[in-house]
Design a protein around this nucleic acid. Structure first.
Length: 548
DNA sequence: CTAGGGTTAG
């Protein structure tokens, strides 16, 4: 029986459930019940449940669940799926699971499984998600996409890529959403080879490169060290939106191309795309890495006055970092205490880093104290503090910090670096000897050290944490993870080809200056992405102009 | 009428 009035209500509720204000959908549903002219039918519930899920109205959803039972709709696949989604998104995952099991009993379809897996993923329960995934009678491309996106969005980049490969192995054709989901993971891993492969796949299969996929590609190329390709993808896009611009500006900032980033911002304004808070993070970050203090201050001002954006802790972070790097420690500290929110560990770490660079020991001590209160178990701050003392030669204080670390059993975050060769990612830690080609790698490292020494290079050991003899410190430096990765790259690639290394921490000062020389001696461009930014080493110098 | 996607300080 077709009821046109009910159809009209359903359509409106559905429209609101997908809008920015899903709560309106709920209000409409209530009105429908109050007016009592038409009752809800099986098509009403998925929409109103979606509104509940998106408005996080789980209590309201539970009441509606009661009505669903009254209406004997509990075995309707669409309704059950919507209920699971509601409970998974804002209720209890075990309620969702109970409904899922019942639904499977009613002969649930692939969507039911996908929603349950998505629920587990949203709760960070990847074990349960994967178990269910492996047990699925039929998997659609959406099932694969959900798992890939789930891993990627929660920082499990390797797992995301593994699932992507497994999907290929099973002969499932990736679609637009698949590539958009896996690209951020590839970007974080810095695997340019795989990223290029995905891009080629997109072109071969004529997958539409819209603003969403375009942004993902731009970000992938910039995070994988190829800012030229990122710019190219941007230029080839038929249309740009704010996110595409943000990806491009952020990429240029990461690569230290501050002036280009600012030119892009201007071009974006000319094309009448309104910049967002994320745009300004990119612009301010560019100014910070480029040492453009006055420009940065001006943009911070414009963000507030012209675009009415409220600066977030990230914006203050960029500003504090920018001022600190430039040696304006007093102004940085002032900004820190005048900002309207409590500083987080990231912002304090940026300032502490600046204190170390500019040997501002007193301020450094104050910041370190606050940092230790905020994140007492974190090693990074102790390392920075110790490095700060070391750089002014206060070895007694270095020893004290070391002792404190030992007493509190706080370990330095393990540094690791990786390089992708012929589609395989090789990861190394300091003094790594687990690689099958360790012998060759170490003889390459010896060769590098020897050539550096002949070039008159003297190691900068002030950033070595170990309280050991000079010679031993130097040895440790020579086996930092980024050097091992570079040595492995040198022995496993064609002469003259570019090496791309990713490191999880900031590159140390000694590795930085020796990389410059290594690039010259071996005639290689070495592109290192550290936690902070890109360093392009070429012909004995670095793109960061040693301002980092 | 039910499922999956991009940019964000250090």
């Amino acid at each position: 029986m077709h009821d046109p009035n009910c159809f009209a209500w359903n359509t409106s509720i559905r429209a609101f459930s997908e809008s920015d204000d899903p709560f309106e959908g709920l209000l409409l549903f209530r009105r429908m019940l109050c007016e009592g002219l038409v009752g809800p039918n099986r098509y009403t519930f998925p929409s109103v449940l979606k509104a509940c899920a998106r408005a996080c109205g789980v209590e309201e959803g539970k009441q509606i669940h009661g009505q669903i039972i009254k209406w004997r709709l509990e075995s309707d696949g669409f309704v059950v799926t919507s209920l699971i989604r509601l409970y998974a998104m804002c209720g209890s995952i075990s309620d969702a699971r109970r409904l899922f099991d019942e639904g499977v009993g009613y002969g649930g379809n692939v969507v039911l499984w996908n929603v349950m897996i998505d629920g587990y993923v949203r709760h960070g329960m990847f074990g349960s998600a994967k178990r269910l995934f492996d047990r699925m009678p039929h998997r659609s491309v959406v099932s694969w996409n959900g798992l890939i996106a789930g891993y990627a969005q929660n920082g499990f980049f390797k797992e995301a890529v593994d699932v992507f490969r497994e999907m290929q192995g099973e002969g499932v054709e990736p679609n637009h959403v698949t590539v958009v989901s896996v690209l951020p993971a590839i970007a974080r891993l810095g695997d340019l080879g795989l990223g290029k492969w995905v891009h080629a796949f997109v072109e071969k299969n004529k997958i539409d490169v819209d603003e969403v996929l375009g942004s993902a590609l731009i970000d992938m190329y910039s995070k994988c060290g190829s800012i030229e390709k990122a710019v190219q993808v941007f230029k080839d896009l038929p249309k740009a939106n704010v996110v595409t611009w943000n990806a491009l500006i952020g990429g240029l900032a990461m690569h230290g191309q501050a002036k280009d980033a600012i030119q892009c911002f201007k071009a974006m304004e000319r094309s009448r795309i309104v910049p967002s808070d994320v745009t300004f993070i990119g612009v301010l970050n560019a100014c910070s890495h480029g040492g453009l203090v006055d420009v940065g201050r001006a943009y911070f001002d414009r963000m507030v006055r012209e675009y009415n954006l409220k600066p977030s802790i990230e914006h203050y972070g960029c500003m504090v970092d920018m001022l600190g790097r430039a040696g304006l420690l007093e102004e940085a500290e002032e900004l820190l205490s005048s900002m309207p929110m409590q500083p987080d560990d990231a912002i304090l770490k940026a300032l502490l880093w600046a204190c170390r660079v500019h040997c501002e020991v007193e301020l450094g001590k104050r910041i370190a104290k606050r940092l230790m209160e905020l994140a007492p178990r974190e090693g990074g701050c102790y390392v920075l503090l110790s490095n700060m003392y070391a750089s002014i030669g206060d070895w007694e204080s270095v020893a004290k910090v070391r002792l404190l670390m030992k007493e509190l059993d706080i370990r330095k975050d393990p540094g690791s670096s990786w390089i992708s060769i012929d589609g395989a990612v090789h990861e190394f830690v300091v003094e790594d000897d687990s690689h099958p080609r360790t012998k060759e790698i170490y003889s390459m490292l010896e060769g590098m050290s020897e050539k550096l020494r002949l070039a008159g290079y003297v190691s900068n050991t002030t950033q070595v944490l170990l309280n050991v003899e000079e010679e031993e410190k130097e040895t440790t430096l020579h086996y930092h993870s980024e050097r091992i990765a570079v040595a492995f790259g040198l022995i496993s690639t064609e002469p003259g080809s570019t090496l791309r290394v990713v490191k999880n921490l900031r590159i140390c000062a000694d590795c930085h200056s020796s990389m410059k020389l290594v690039s010259k001696i071996y005639r290689r461009t070495i592109i290192v992405r550290d936690r902070n930014r890109f360093h392009h080493f070429k012909d004995g110098s670095c793109s960061c102009k040693d301002y980092w």
